[in-house]
Design a protein around this nucleic acid. Sequence first.
DNA 1: CACGACTAGACCAAGGCACC
DNA 2: GGTGCCTTGGTCTAGTCGTG
Length: 203
Amino acid sequence: MKEIKESTETEAPSGLNDRIAQRVRDLRAARGLSLDALATHCGVSRSMISLIERGESSPTAVLLEKLATGLGVSLASLFEAPAPAADPVSRLASQLQWRDPHSGYVRRNVSPSGFASPIQIVEVMFPPKARVAYETAAREPLIHQQVWVLDGVIELTLGDDRHRLETGDCLAMVLDRPMSYYNPSRKTTRYAVVIATAPSSWR
DNA sequence: CACGACTAGACCAAGGCACC
DNA sequence: GGTGCCTTGGTCTAGTCGTG
């Protein structure tokens, strides 16, 4: 069993999988959903949900997004610590990174983990030629997201709308329809994602 | 071709309920 | 109270599929 690294390197999968497991279990219990109910709700088999909740699987970003949609939370919140953090400062060395086993993209939760805030910031390193397609659907409460490209280029498709973002560009969106990310370039694209949970009056 | 993610279905355990 | 049946919730396993 590997130890969780206190560095900016990608966390050992086992440690982060345990955190995701705890989060999914807690969120499902809080909503009073059985494995079967959540499976029906999000389109993931209950076997897979059970494996994730026991930390025995390394789910892909696409699958986690489906789970997050079914649970009505953002993908980023699945990486949060179960208990609220007392420290409002998130140090670089303690920010957890997670690598999508499918596309190889690496995301780092920048915001203080577990701190009660409607805003979350995530940094993403997206490999060249990689592509990730999410079957995102509307959630309650509504989740707003802005993608700010720090270095490189990313093609973002939202429903039928396609956007090419280059260094410095920023795209605002609402997570209510399928979306995909594609890096058409030969170098890794670095971008920041700012996620906000909106009250219904924002619509 | 090996490996890991994922699914479908079988299987198991526990709880509720009706019946004797 | 004991038994059998059904439902619910969870785990296990065999097989498929995609990727490197």
